[in-house]
Design a protein around this nucleic acid. Structure first.
Lengths: 366, 366
DNA sequence: GCTAGCACTCTTTCTATCCGAGTGCTAATT
DNA sequence: AATTAGCACTCGGATAGAAAGAGTGCTAGC
């Protein structure tokens, strides 16, 4: 059933009021903004409460949005916020390090997200399976050689291998061609014992050399796929009034700091509108997040790699502002990563608009 | 001036009582343990207060140790604690991953320290300057090659270099010999512009190829020296009653999470007894740590590398227990790292005893 | 030099009370 | 039929005062 226009406005006002003040919102406060008397608003609010969009902490306190209320707000009511010039400038400046090491940038994306939103943030990159494109074996000395593996995602891994016995240059060369023949183009799951064994036979390897290099290979491939998840700005949680209770804060913080839990919850559902997904309170799977909300955005990291950034906060979260910021950052990352490596035929402007309608033009001050 | 035996016992009891309960310690509570009446203890305590070893939060609360009191306790009074079997076993088990990747182990040392002590912990490794031992250039295709640098610490770094123009195999080979001639055996600070320029001339390099590889080299060397500092278990701070005030907790946590501040404070003074250093409250340089204590231990990471682990907590910290644990962990790390790579002529047992007197034998339960 | 006793201080806790914000309902108004 | 004004009622939060308790400092006696 569709809500009347006025109910929507009231719900919106309650949500935004509560977000801003962390205090239950009363009818009197809304009378002016809505443009009718407090009694009318009371009636409306009481209906909204019956419908499950609002809640009362107790009789005779104002109203507070229920999870359903937040949901409706996020889905339909929320105004897309534009970022201020200062904000876009700050983000752009950070992202402008494009030329510098992407690795480092990625390590700082969490920091950036957290500092822009003022909530704890996390960032992770999901990669598709990779394979080794080619191996090179560098002969260092009789007991030492280096394996260099160039992966399909153009990263390079290496390992120094030190042997308790000596090898000849030719043995290394043989090993090299065998590995290039047998271990390239396969993902970590496709490396079977039988391949290893047959390579061992072909190399006449009795020292387990093949096994060592093969396990290094598998490690590389697994590591390249595994998402390194970074959490940043945990302590900002303590800024939120709902976490002034140290026990609550503690519980959520230790949950957050072990990123693995967050990951479980992340990729399941597809992204909503604008590539931003909002999960409100009880919608979260994890028990520890039942009173919190998670906002996440995904970005295209090129080559089919999909990255995620997100923030965690109380259900009373500035969804609109956070969504705008995440969206903008995600769009910037997509542009940078996908744009450089594998242009998607979208210029910057387009990517921005597509992914969020949070263009940076417009100069509201606030 | 030397304290009487009884004063020492009283001070010890106050410190340990306060550590255990976080409540000011009164005279009555001590009467039994010390073995004289509360009035006597009051007199003694009042003298200890005058001497600056104890403090009163207000008239008619018990006494609390002052920083000087803690200092005295740590330096002279504190009993060296032995670890329980369970504790040593837990630590040993974690450290037993020796064979696995040292890198990962190091990343987890912070976690281990934090979980053993129940305080936030950090871990960092300081390395001496390194140089490149040898370069290898792998020719991939006309536009691409890989630089592999074997460093003096036997780690290997690499970089895939993609060019907007094509190069011949021979050019790469030339580059390789030039780099091996000019850029090996020098630390990052010793790489000057003039070396780069002369190499450029020798290579007839007009595309800035040399510059690219040289900057990669410097990056590697700098990165190998730079200490990666990890902080773990921040949220445990909230377990401490003194940080139930969210503002205090927040202040310290954000200070801690940016590891760079911690580093400033670390290496200055040499380690005290047992390789464990305790810095109490106002002894800390950083303003944010004036109400907190830092306990740190250093370990020998081999090859002149020196690592540090430490914990941060309230001044009311279990110095004795923490020192024992840090010492044990540090000894274990020294043994592992220095023991494997560059034996120092100390067997495990010896290292343990030398660095801490916290042997693992003895079977107290508690 | 130690101890018992006592008055005093200061915090903590409890209780009772008050206050006000906000509701829900009813009756009047448009 | 929708809106508004008015009013009694409720409940949490703040405030103040009282009581409790813990611990000290001091004095006098052992």
């Amino acid at each position: 059933m569709e809500l009347s226009e006025r109910k929507k406005r009231i719900l919106t006002a309650v949500v935004e009021g509560y977000i801003a003040t962390a205090e239950p919102v009363g009818s009197k406060a809304l009378a002016q903004t809505i443009g009718c008397s407090s009694a009318t608003i009371r009636n409306e609010m009481s209906e909204l409460t019956a419908m499950g969009y609002l809640e009362q902490p107790h009789t005779s306190a104002g109203r507070v949005p229920s999870p359903a209320g937040y949901r409706l707000y996020v889905n339909e009511l929320m105004e897309k916020q534009k970022l201020s010039e200062a904000e876009t400038a700050a983000i752009n400046e950070k992202l402008a390090r494009k030329d510098e090491q992407i690795e480092k940038l990625m390590a700082e994306v969490g920091q950036l997200t957290s500092s822009m939103t003022q909530y704890p943030a996390y960032a992770l990159t999901m990669k598709p399976p990779v394979a080794v494109k080619r191996f090179d074996f560098i002969y260092v000395d009789a007991n030492t050689f280096i394996v260099v593996a160039l992966l399909t995602d153009n990263t390079v891994k290496n390992k120094l291998i030190h042997l308790p016995f000596s090898v000849h240059q030719e043995q290394i060369t043989t090993l090299s061609s065998l590995f290039n023949a047998n271990f390239t183009g396969v993902t970590d799951r496709e490396i079977t014992d039988s391949i290893i064994r047959s390579t061992e036979r072909a190399a006449g390897d009795t020292y387990g050399l093949v096994a060592v290099v093969a396990s290094f290979t598998m490690e590389c491939l697994a590591a390249a796929r595994t998402a390194p998840l970074r959490v940043a700005g945990q302590s900002r949680l303590l800024d939120q009034p709902e976490f002034r209770d140290p026990d609550k804060a503690h519980a959520l913080m230790s949950f957050i700091s072990d990123g693995s839990h967050l990951m479980d919850d992340l990729p399941p559902a597809g992204m909503g509108t604008d590539g931003v997904r909002v999960t409100i309170g009880p919608e979260n799977m994890a028990e520890e997040l039942k009173d919190s909300s998670v906002v996440m955005a995904s970005y295209d990291a090129g080559d089919g790699m999909r990255g995620y950034i997100g923030v965690v906060g109380p259900t009373r979260m500035d969804y609109s502002g956070v969504a705008a910021k995440l969206s903008y950052i995600a769009a910037g990352l997509s542009r940078m990563l996908a744009g450089t490596d594998a242009p998607r035929g979208l210029d910057n402007k387009l990517v921005l608009k597509e992914s969020g309608h949070y263009e940076q033009e417009g100069r509201e001050k606030e």
